[in-house]
Every structure is written in C-alpha cells, then in structure tokens.
Amino acid sequence: MLKIENLKVSLGDREVLKSVNLEIKPGEAHVLFGPNGSGKTSLLMTLMGFSNYRVTEGTINFKDRDITGMSIDERARLGIGMSFQRPPTIKGLKTRQMVALCSAGKEIRLEEMANRLNFEDFLDRDLNAGFSGGEIKRSELLQLMAQNPDLILLDEPESGVDLESISLIGEVINELLERKPGKDHAASSRERRSKRAKAGLLITHTGYILNYVDADVGHVLYDGVLSCHGNPRETLRCIQDMGYQECMRCMV
C-alpha cells in the first residue's frame, strides 16, 4: 500500500530525514520508535504532504501511485489520514462542524462516534481550543473515524493520555485498523490479516500502545535514518535494555 524509497527530507535548511526505506502492505500495522528529535513526526508530516517538509530525494508511492509531489488534500482523498501530535486550534469552528467536514458528505453517525470516544461534551467547543493532551487524541481519532482513511498515520496516540483512557484509545485504533484482537481464534493471524485492507503507521515513545494494538513490524528511526526492522516487541525490549544507540548498533 505504501512504499517509501531512499527518502531524504529537509525542514528549512536542515536535513531531518536522511535515509528512509519502508514498505507497508495492506492490513499491516507498523510501529516507529525513536528518540526525541529523531524525525518521527517529520516522516509522518512528509507522508501527509505538509509544505514545510521538502523532499530532496527519493519517492513515496501509495496505492501504486507516485504521490511525492501530490497536494495534501489529494493524498487525503486518496486514503491517507493522520492523527496529529499538536494540531492547531481553529477558532470559531466547532468540533462538530470539523467532524462533519471530515466525512466529506458521507453519511456518518456523529453522535454515536463521539459517544464511543466519550467526547460528546466537546462537540460544541472550538476545535482544539484548550484541549488537554488526551482530549486532543480523542478529537483526532474522532476526525479519523469520520474520514475513514485506508492508511492511518498516528503520531504518539498515547502520549498525555491517562491510563484509563489508553485502553479506549487503543480499542478505537484497532477499530480504525479493522483489528479485533483476541476474538477470532479459529483463523490464523495470516488469514485475519489478509481480510483487512487498512494499514497503519504508529509512532510510540513508550510502547504502551503495543499492549492494545498488536502491531506487525517495528522500526527504529535514529537521527533521520530508519533501520532495525523487526518484531515490535523485541525491538522495544532491545531499546529498553540497551538504549537506542546500542540497539541500533546491534541490529545493523
């Protein structure tokens, strides 16, 4: 579904991504680890097409189309959606109106979706205005529910979220990714995966989210270089035991 080849990206005159190669197949969920400032957010922003992030080399293919030069809204309409770490406040625009705009005319059950996220009380507030960390995550997921993208980019969906809400957020992410954990013992994981069309790329700092979302592949981004592709839990354990730098060394 997504194929990134030899990607280099600059932000201003600073190179934030130096070498990124990544392939995500339909039905897969990938996790991206990396220390602060390593370029994780930059990678997602680049995939979404934000104008500050200038691709200097390499290509991004999505659904067999080269989207490297495509505008943000075209990418969104093609099926990419993103949950932002620090989205801007839009004064006077009610969250309810934004969610409706995200649905692009599709019939949605807005109240029901908000209810699922415990977010009804925020529908009539200005979008993101004074939202706490956890409220921002729920607002972002609500918008994604309405948008219903095929490739979901999630930037630290669990940061700033209290322990109680994490499981809710994890469940909603599973729903967005068409993953119903546990239930389907009969089918092999391969079979389950083949029925899914949705794919995801999640940034996580703490790894908490892995307790709720059963991701398939883990990667480590370090100083703009993506490496260490492997089992997400093992990757996390390695980082926890040895730190990013050591972990990078042993895996390379």
Partner: peptide, 19 residues
Amino acid sequence: YMMSRGMSESDATAAIVRG
C-alpha cells in the same frame, strides 16, 4: 491541517474564515 482531512485549499480557507 484542514486539507489533511480532505478539504481543498479554498474550502479549508472558507471554513477557517467562517469560524
């Protein structure tokens, strides 16, 4: 940000101005 939800640049601008 609005465009990343699928709105064109002019629709995004209009929504922000209305807000």
